[in-house]
């Protein structure tokens, strides 16, 4: 279950990227992704520049590239979709390694891959350098509605507890010779799912009681995170600023 000091996506460190306040990084990530997505269709050279900028940020964070690469498996469904696109799309065809594929499809797939990969690497870098608690504090500071922050906070806190509960139920099933093979096992698995839901619901009620007992009146206290200095904002703005410039340049040139 992850490192001793955070969730599975987090890489413990003290680099300048780690030290940036979470809310600066959230804004930076959002601007970076928007600028990348806004790249005009059919122009590919900006992606090389985005990648250079992003790799510089990875370098500054001192997160090993292999750490990020391993976690890029989340992109797999998008890659599969992108690979299919040239075959299913319509329009003029071109030959690629002896196979006839759609030209539009090929281009769209390449765009999707470039944009997707950059977005995934940037998000992974964010997750690797930001503890979940700081992420929540950052959202709170960015004025995300209280209820949403609270729901996310509880999800982060109780994900492991509920997963452990699920594991225990699985072990208890298997200890009595249950094997989850074939449709005959589905009713049992479904009932376990139901039981898990009820347990989680009851825990929710107990947690609420415990909160009321300590004076909860509808608002979680502000998670402490100090405001960011102008210097920190400017450091955080380096990557998205560069990306926006490249994206703008691509629009000007491609016109």
């Amino acid at each position: 279950m992850g490192a001793a000091h955070g969730h599975r996506l987090y890489f413990h460190g003290h680099s300048p990227v780690h030290r940036l306040p979470a809310h600066c990084k959230i804004v930076a990530l959002l601007c970076f992704v928007l600028a990348v997505v806004a790249t005009p269709a059919g122009v590919f050279w900006p992606f090389a520049w985005y990648a250079v900028g992003l790799l510089a940020a990875v370098g500054a964070s001192r997160v090993p590239p292999l750490f990020l690469a391993r976690r890029m498996v989340v992109e797999t469904p998008f890659v599969l979709f992108a690979v299919l696109m040239p075959f299913v799309a319509t329009g003029p065809r071109v030959d690629l390694l002896g196979v006839s594929v759609s030209e539009h499809g090929l281009q769209a797939a390449a765009m999707l891959l470039c944009k997707g990969t950059l977005g995934v690497v940037a998000s992974l870098l964010f997750a690797a350098t930001t503890e979940s608690r700081d992420f929540l504090a950052g959202l709170q500071r960015l004025r995300m509605p209280q209820q949403l922050v609270q729901i996310m906070a509880f999800m982060v806190r109780y994900l492991d507890v509920t997963t452990a509960e699920m594991q225990r139920m699985r072990v208890a099933r298997e200890a009595r010779c249950f094997s989850a093979r074939g449709p005959a096992a589905w009713p049992t698995v479904a009932r376990s799912g139901g039981a898990l839901f009820i347990r989680a619901y009851e825990r929710g009620e107990r947690v609420h009681l415990a909160m009321l007992s300590r004076g909860y009146a509808g608002r979680l206290p502000m998670l402490s995170e100090s405001p960011a200095s102008a210097l920190q904002w400017s450091v955080a703005a380096l990557l998205p600023g560069f990306t926006v410039l490249v994206s703008l340049a691509a629009w000007t040139i491609s016109r």
Binding site: A153, R157, R206, V207, Y216, L220, P221
Partner: peptide, 25 residues
């Protein structure tokens, strides 16, 4: 009141936030 299951009692992301919850309220 200290409840029986500490997982019910401790619901904030870190020990610090949790101990601060009551006094902050």
């Amino acid at each position: 009141v200290v409840f029986q299951d500490p997982d019910d009692q401790l619901f904030m992301p870190t020990v610090r936030d949790d101990v601060a919850f009551g006094p902050a309220n």
